[in-house]
Design a protein around this nucleic acid. Structure first.
Ligand code: SF4
Ligand code: SF4
Lengths: 137, 137
DNA sequence: CTAAATCTATACTATTCCAGTATAGTACTG
DNA sequence: CAGTACTATACTGGAATAGTATAGATTTAG
C-alpha cells in the first residue's frame, strides 16, 4: 500500500527539471547528486520517464534530460504510471479477474474501494508539477 | 500500492460475520469454505482480527468467530489497520525520517500526498460494514 | 576522424516481503 | 477425558524491491 522508492526518486527528478529555466537540461550525474539518488539507479529511472514521454534526453557532451512538455501538463499521476503502471489500491481494481472468490454479483467492498480510488486518482491528476514548484519556498 | 491478499480475505470474513444474526458465530472451517479462503490461512487472518479487537472467538465444539461490536462500528480502515498497520501511500507519510533526501524545508510532493491520503483514510473510515452489507443484493 | 562524454537497454544480484503451510499448545463441551 | 476448535509462532518457496553492472549507441570538441 505504498509507492516505491524508484517512484519517489522520479518525483524528485521531475521536480528538479520543472524548476529549471525552459529548455535547460541537466545530466544524470548532476541529478543524482542534487537529489540524493544513487548514481547508477538514476539512469534506470530517467529511462522509464523518457519511455513514458515525460522527459526528453540529449546525448553526448553537454547532454542530459529536460521536460518533454510544460510542467503544468505533468502530474504526480503521470510519474507514478510511468514507474509503476496504472494505480490500483486493490487487486480487483487492477484487473477484475484477480478476485479469487468469483463473486457472482458486485461485491460491496469492491464498489466502495473503486469510489475511493477514483477520488485518489483524480487528486493525483490534479497535482501538476507546475503547482508543486509554485509551493516551494 | 495495493492492499494485500490477507486483507482482502479479512474483508470477506468480516462481511460474512456482519451479515449473520447478532450473537451468532461461525467456525474457521465454514468461513474458509463460504468465502474461498485457504483453510489454514484463515486462522492467521482471524487471529489478527481478534488481536485487533474486531472479532471475538469461542473455543471448543460449536465455537467460532463473531463480531466484537456492531457492524456499524467496524470500517474498512479498521480491518486494513488490523492486517497491515497504519495506512500510508508513501514512505515519508509512514514515518517522516524515511525520506533519504533529508529535505530541509517541507517537500511539496509530501504535502500533496498527505492531503490525498487524508481524503482516502477519511473515506475508508466512513465505509462501515453495516453500510456495505446494506448494499448487498 | 577519433576520443570522451553522455544516454540506452538489458542482465544480474542480494535482500525483503508475500502467501501460504505446519505444528505444538490451550480451552471448552459433552 | 476425548474430540473439537481456537492460539501462537515457526517455517518455506516464490515474487518483488532496490540496486549494480555492462555492453552499446549517439553527440560534440578538437
Ligand atoms: S471479494 Fe470483493 S473486494 Fe475482494 S477481490 Fe473480490 S471483488 Fe474485490
Ligand atoms: S522527497 Fe518529498 S515525497 Fe519524497 S520521501 Fe522526501 S519528503 Fe517524501
Amino acid at each position: 500500500m505504498q509507492l516505491n522508492q524508484a517512484t519517489d526518486y522520479a518525483f524528485r527528478a521531475v521536480l528538479h527539471l520543472a524548476s529549471l529555466p525552459a529548455g535547460a537540461v541537466v545530466s544524470a550525474r548532476e541529478l543524482a547528486e542534487a537529489q540524493a539518488i544513487p548514481p547508477r539507479f538514476v539512469l534506470k529511472i530517467m529511462h522509464a520517464l523518457t519511455r513514458a514521454g515525460l522527459v526528453e534526453s540529449r546525448r553526448g557532451p553537454a547532454g542530459g534530460f529536460g521536460l518533454a512538455r510544460p510542467a503544468a501538463e505533468i502530474s504526480l499521476l503521470d510519474v507514478i504510471e510511468a514507474l509503476e503502471g496504472p494505480v490500483a489500491i486493490h487487486r480487483c481494481l487492477a484487473e477484475r479477474e484477480a478476485c479469487n472468490k468469483h463473486c457472482t454479483s458486485e461485491c460491496p467492498v469492491h464498489a466502495a474501494l473503486r469510489g475511493l480510488q477514483d477520488g485518489l486518482v483524480a487528486g493525483l491528476r490534479r497535482a501538476t508539477f507546475a503547482s508543486l514548484v509554485a509551493k516551494k519556498p
